[in-house]
């Protein structure tokens, strides 16, 4: 019997719930023998547009439902554990990284319906008002994933953003993009509405300036930026006063969710 031919996989970007090649048709080879799409600024533009369109629907979901969907992402990720371990280079460290990524998703899934109670407050005010503060999603969040750990860094970026009701355009690790694109397949089967999460691969220096200056992006999680990239992103972000969050210690924390949220205060008249 003839040996089975390999089915070679073409990795794709994940934009608006679809797996697409870069509109530019370009690819690069971070891993021998594997073509990975090299996203252009127009792919970024399309991703932001898709995210913006998806925002109202995702922010309008109940917190419970967002938690359910994040938990399902953890289930889907866990089910493909071996594939991720292989793409991360195999061995025990890779196994630990996948476990940590699953844990992060489960952890943030649990926070969705508890966050408002913890981060929100009822404020004592000197007047006939019931005054309270609640966290609300910011909008489109650009997540710049760390180069390593490639999978865990990305998950720690997108999970808190999504838990808070934001929509995400993620720039994957440039040197190790495969786990990110496989994670996109996990997200695609987790019931996220199209456009809520978008994953782009390619050269950071091509994409980051456009993400930083984009007037329709509300916040950037710059965990994966170098010091120079961070400074440039902060400068570009001033155009529409986006929030740039950087230098998180990598720990799971509810403040990772609230960092990407806006605190809204309501003054509700209560009569005398």
């Amino acid at each position: 019997m003839a040996p089975r031919l390999d089915v070679r996989k073409t990795y794709k970007l994940f934009v608006n719930g679809e797996f697409v090649r870069s509109e530019s048709g370009r690819a690069y080879r971070p891993v021998a023998g594997v073509n990975v799409p090299r996203a252009s600024r127009k792919d970024l533009r399309d991703a932001v547009r898709a995210a913006r369109t998806a925002f109202d629907g995702w922010a309008g979901r109940t917190a419970t439902n967002r938690g359910q969907i994040l938990y399902r992402a953890a289930e889907m990720l866990d089910g493909r554990r071996l594939q991720f371990i292989q793409e991360l280079g195999g061995g025990k460290p890779a196994g630990r990284e996948v476990d940590a990524a699953v844990e992060a998703l489960v952890w943030y899934a649990g926070w969705t319906d508890k966050l408002a109670q913890v981060a929100g407050t009822v404020n004592p005010v000197a007047g006939p008002y019931f005054n309270f503060t609640i966290p609300e999603p910011t909008g489109v969040v650009g997540v710049v994933a760390t180069e390593t750990p490639a999978l865990l860094g990305l998950v720690r970026g997108i999970a808190p953003a999504l838990a808070g009701g934001n929509v995400v355009v993620a720039l994957a690790s440039e040197s190790r993009p495969l786990p990110a694109l496989t994670l996109a397949e996990v997200l695609a089967t987790s019931d996220f509405p199209p456009g809520v999460v978008n994953v782009l691969t390619g050269q950071r220096k091509e994409l980051l300036p456009w993400l930083g200056a984009h007037m329709d992006v509300n916040a950037i999680d710059a965990a994966g930026c170098t010091a120079e990239e961070l400074a440039a992103a902060q400068e570009a972000a001033a155009g529409n006063v986006k929030r740039v969050v950087a230098h998180r210690n990598g720990e799971l924390s509810p403040s990772a969710i609230t960092d990407l949220m806006e605190m809204k205060t309501v003054w509700h008249p209560i009569g005398t």
Partner: peptide
């Protein structure tokens, strides 16, 4: 004119 993608807002 500005070189940055714009928001519909």
């Amino acid at each position: 004119k500005t070189g940055a993608y714009q928001s519909a807002d």
